[in-house]
Nucleic acid binder design. Sequence first.
DNA 1: ATGACTGCAAAGACTTTGCATCTTT
DNA 2: AAAGATGCAAAGTCTTTGCAGTCAT
Lengths: 138, 138
Amino acid sequence: MERAIRYSKKREAILNAIRCSKAHPSAEWIYHTLKPEHPDLSLGTVYRNLLFFQQQGMIQSVGVVNGQERFDGETNPHSHFVCSKCGAVMDLDQIPMDANLSKQVEELYGVQVQRHELTFYGTCKKCMQNKFEEAILS
Amino acid sequence: MERAIRYSKKREAILNAIRCSKAHPSAEWIYHTLKPEHPDLSLGTVYRNLLFFQQQGMIQSVGVVNGQERFDGETNPHSHFVCSKCGAVMDLDQIPMDANLSKQVEELYGVQVQRHELTFYGTCKKCMQNKFEEAILS
DNA sequence: ATGACTGCAAAGACTTTGCATCTTT
DNA sequence: AAAGATGCAAAGTCTTTGCAGTCAT
C-alpha cells in the first residue's frame, strides 16, 4: 500500500512561495518569508517539504550556491545564471537547452540521463555597478 | 606588496592528487588518499589548498554532489555527467561546449560571464547494472 | 481512530578558522 | 629572521532526524 498524501496549510504555503518567487529560494529564504504569516513554522518542515516536492518532481534543485541549496519551481528545462558575487540566480529563458544532447550522452557513454543543466557563472548587473562605484571611490 | 607564495610538499601532493585522478575528488577523498604517504596531513590543509588552487585558477569546482564539493584539475571547458545514485562524476570530452553561448548571455542579459557548466544527471553504467540485478533477485 | 504532518531541539555532515608550531626563503 | 604553510581542535553553517504532539481524512 502506498503512503497517503495529506493536505497541509504549510506545505501549500511552501510550494506557493517557491513558485511565486523568481529568486530560486533557499530553505532559509522560504522560512523567513513565510514566518510572518506562519509564526509556528519550523525550518525542519521547510526541509522536509523541499525533499518531498523534489521526490514528487514538483520542484528541482538548481544546485548549491554559497553553501545553500537553491530550488526552482519551474521544472521545464531552461538554463541559469549564477552571480558569483551576490549569489543571485536567474532564469535564462532566451538561451535554449538542446534536448538532443541527453540522447547523445546516453549513446556515447552508455549511461541513462534524467536531465541536464546549463549554468553560467559570472557577475550580475547590480554587482558590476557596485564594482564600478567602488573603483571610482578608491 | 603582494603576498608571497611558498613551496610546500603537501600542497604539491594535493594538486598532484587532483590532477592525476579522474574521479573529480572531494576534500575527504584527497585526505584519505594522501594520508598513507603523509601521515601528518590534516583536513584543514586540504581545504585551505583547495581554496588556494581555485583562487589561482589551477582547479575548478564541479559543484556539490551528495553534500560534498567536488573538484576538477582540468580547467579547459568540458561537460560532466553526475550519477545520482553513487555520486560518480565523469568528464564528457565528446560533448562540445559552445563558447559563443557565454557571449550571447552577456549581450542578452547585461551580465558578465566567467564560465559556464554543462552537466548531465542520471544513472551511470555500473549503477544501472546493479539496478538490473536487484530487479532480478526480487 | 489512523497515520501523515509538524515543532522543537539534538545530532550529523561538511567546511572554516584561530593559534601555536614548523618550514621555506 | 620574517612570513607563509600546517596541525589540531573548536567553532560555524547548513541539513537531517527522533519524538511527542497536532491535524487531515
